[in-house]
Write a protein that binds this DNA or RNA. Sequence first.
RNA 1: GCUGACUUAGCUCAGUUGGCAGAGCACUUCACUAGUAAUGAAGGGGUCGGAGGUUCGAAUCCUCUAGUCAGCACCA
Length: 643
Amino acid sequence: MSFALTLPDGSKKEFESAVTVSELASSISTSLAKNAVAGKVDGEVKPLDFSLAEDHEVAILTNKDAEGLSVLRATVAFVLEAIVKEKYPEIKLGQAEISENGFFIETDKEDQIKVTELPELEKALQKAVKNGQAIEHVQVAKSELADAFKDDPYKQELLANYGETVDAYKLGDFVDFGFDALLPNTGKIKKFKLLSVAGAYWKGKSSNPMLQRIFGTAFFKEADLEADLKRRAEIKERDHRTIGRDLDLFFVDPKVGAGLPYWMPKGATIRRIIERYIVDKEVAAGYQHVYTPVLMNLDAYKTSGHWAHYREDMFPPMDMGEGEWLELRPMNCPSHIQIYKHHIRSYRELPIRIAELGMMHRYEKSGALSGLQRVREMTLNDGHTFVALDQVQEEFARTLKIIMDVYHDFNINDYYFRLSYRDPKNTDKYFANDEMWERSQSMLKAAMDDMGLDYVEAEGEAAFYGPKLDIQTKTALGNDETMSTIQLDFMLPERFELTYVGADGEEHRPVMIHRGIVGTMERFIAYLTEIYKGAFPTWLAPVQAEIIPVNLDAHSDYAKKVRDELIAKGFRAEIDFRNEKLGYKIRESQTQKVPYTLVLGDDEMNAGTVNVRPYGTEEQNSESLDEFMDKLSKDVASYSRED
RNA sequence: GCUGACUUAGCUCAGUUGGCAGAGCACUUCACUAGUAAUGAAGGGGUCGGAGGUUCGAAUCCUCUAGUCAGCACCA
């Protein structure tokens, strides 16, 4: 009985009798055997003692593989569980999990573990791994594990998903299960750090009790750990809240309202440019821009279903007396529907594209608020297209193309597509009409497949009125967030009884496509701030040229002349009139990340030139003002992109 | 909203056991009149998030409350 193992390079190795992953590694090379941490068998991560006895595709995972790192982290999490269990025998353990940036374990005990205890736990962990104890990989009867965890309801619950025999690992008296693979010995654990503690609902459900997560990270090499800790420290420098304050872009003052941002002149400038850009873009794409009221009769939101499905995210309605209630709008689909309904519509008009930069108010839960990323007042780049059924796919593709164009202009490259469906297990949250959900979800999927685009599918992420394509980006902290969205909606046209007159003279029901290109101005600008680290490209920079006269008395007039000429041409220029030295002002201009710093002294004044220092360089280019303005124009027109 | 930590000058932060509220930056004024990342000096600026309590005395201890931060839940 012989079998063959196919290695990643395509070569095959024949064996007569079963071999383990680590024996396979040894048969290839001693260095591989030394660095092996687990195996990947037909795409699944398996431990080193996993026995191979038939044809498989096998890769040896080492300390260089991301999955190898996950095995290390799982092992550290396992040892940490053993330590807290030893220290607090009464503690209950939840799930141990591995993430991109580290791992966590879940614990539950009366007196919660404090952040201040982390160094102590870290020491205990260090001690435990110092001499390299063996971790035993065993097959255990489910009943035996049930017994071991008889006082631990969380582990019991996890255990329920397993068969009669469970893959488990033992370290001394401690036993646990649920790992793809662990290292056979704690000796390889060298570099780790416990980072924080935080609450998290058991199994991610807010109706469940809250457990306490202990977060940590681990690496094979000290340099990697240090680089990671450094990266964590540097996150703050990219955080839009830090940059927003340092560059004086915006503020949120809890005393005047949590989640209600104030845009300072510089932030407002960036916002104004983006708003003009997006309106121009949309008009060019056939949208008709409108303005609609911030307040709306509550009845409209009852008809739309917002009041039934979205009430807890809405501000309380205002009682106007005599049975009239007004509501601060959380979304403006009903407003654009009013615009559609204002005239009788013909099939010849479709698609009808209505867009607006509209201010919305949503009563976000206090714990959700975060800088400009989550606010209670936001300006939505909202648009609704009304199409005939057979136009849906083309309009969808067209909308996505606009979004991609915009991303290209802003140099946004790090994102992914998510098809967001309703949660089939919790349909109460959504409009009840199974057929419409099936239909719209499959239409979205078909449209994406036709375009050949990759996407992930996520159940439970849909809007209450329909499924959507979300475009997901990451914040500086690494959290996922929705930036753009395209949503199919068969519901609201039904609810508001929208019609158009077809070629047959009969009334037909249009389909609505809701879409946000830059989503909200708040979140979009927060995102841009983070990806640009505050160094906005010239076309967006609040100040494009900072003018510094070498001597206030001698050069101020020339500086004003240069500034006025720049402003007259539509550029944004400022003079630093403060009574400070040149070096001081240069420094300020650089820390404020102004694209071009102009130094004007005798040389420039006499020659009628400007001395230009581009941001982030130490260049000093002397050029005529016309040359500089020409360069500036090109920079702005190209969105500061090379391609 | 939930768990935990935190809240002191515009910003970043000290403040010991409960005993006269501080520093740097920023701001104002004065001097210096500057050539590419911080000139020097002086000055102004605080109900120590808010309310209550303990105490001879509270930034410090206790209770409540608001907010911020991290995570969870929710979400653009």
